[in-house]
Design a protein around this nucleic acid. Structure first.
Length: 292
DNA sequence: GTCCAGGTTTTTA
DNA sequence: TAAAAACATGGA
């Protein structure tokens, strides 16, 4: 068991239920899920402290370091959020909608595939497809000593495992046309045409262009991969909700909201995006109309 | 039955 | 070059 006390305003439920990740499930007591081959149950106390119980998979000496990084506890969110609130009053409203959100540091390949699946799709179904992908092609994780037997947890599949398949082999996902995209992405990563190391070394703009060489990766999926999977806080994914919110909240800057918000946030427009997304979904009636 | 979902690619004018 | 259509699935 691992306890992390200094969570600096993080809300576990707001963070795991804001559309940035697809493998966490609430169970009343807390949340369980898998990240980077570690299946855990996480409970948050009223003090804000997070209690981790390993269910399966890796439990290494670096556990605390890993989870601190995953939940971005190394960043000074209180300072960042007060800066955002001071910079723009509309942004302040968004932050206040769910101030406990933290942008997770997820794994690159899992993020790329998850957001390929997300296109023209709804969150419950995205979760279902990701779940089938993991149970069908991911490595089963070794149950932790003393963990109650029962559910098996799986790692996210490796690029190599997926790359070895043919498209019909992915029919069980019921992912529709996205199966071809998943396969193309996996093959590119497996054979090195798309390298995480290279992406991490490139400036955001160039990394984005490289990501968009993958079939099915457009601006939005590329930005989600950069933001959630590569820790590029300056990437600002624009989906239908954000497009409408930009017009409502930042009318003067609706066309260049990413650049404007990067100026407001010191290069963390993507983090702001997560609060704006939460606000937009809470206030659908306030969001500007759907066209344009 | 119709509509829509954290888009992107392909086709058409 | 820009706007529409197609793309597979399943829940509301």
């Amino acid at each position: 068991m691992l306890l992390i006390s200094d969570t600096k305003g993080l809300s576990l439920s707001q963070t795991l239920d804001c559309g940035q990740c697809f493998r966490w499930t609430s169970d009343g007591q807390g949340w369980h899920g898998v990240a980077a081959g570690r299946a855990v149950h996480i409970k948050q106390y009223e003090t804000g402290a997070l209690e981790f119980t390993t269910l399966a998979g890796r439990q290494a000496e670096d556990d605390e370091e890993f989870w601190r990084s995953y939940f971005a506890l190394d960043l000074d969110y209180p300072a960042m959020l007060s800066g955002m609130c001071a910079a723009n009053s509309s942004l302040a409203s968004c932050v206040n909608a769910a101030p406990g959100i933290r942008v997770l540091r997820q794994q690159f390949f899992e993020t790329l595939i998850s957001f390929l699946i997300s296109q023209n799709n709804n969150i419950p179904r995205i979760r279902g497809i990701v779940e089938r992908l993991c149970t069908g092609l991911g490595e089963p994780l070794q149950p932790a000593a003393g963990a109650s037997a029962g559910e098996t947890y799986y790692a996210f599949p490796t690029p190599e495992r997926i790359a070895a398949l043919d498209e019909p082999d992915l029919d069980f996902l019921r992912a529709g046309w996205r199966s071809g995209y998943i396969l193309d992405a996996a093959r590119r990563v497996a054979d090195g045409r798309l390298s995480e190391e290279t992406l991490r070394a490139l400036p955001t703009k160039e990394a984005r262009e490289l990501l968009m060489t993958v079939r099915g990766v457009g601006p939005k999926v590329a930005d989600c991969t950069l933001l959630y999977g590569l820790g590029r806080w300056d990437a600002y994914p624009i989906d239908v909700w954000i497009r409408r919110a930009n017009k409502t909240l930042f009318a003067d800057h609706a066309e260049d909201a990413a650049a404007y918000l990067n100026r407001c946030t010191g290069g963390a427009a993507g983090i702001a995006q997560q609060y704006i997304f939460a606000w937009a979904r809470e206030n659908p009636e306030l969001v500007a109309d759907k066209d344009k």
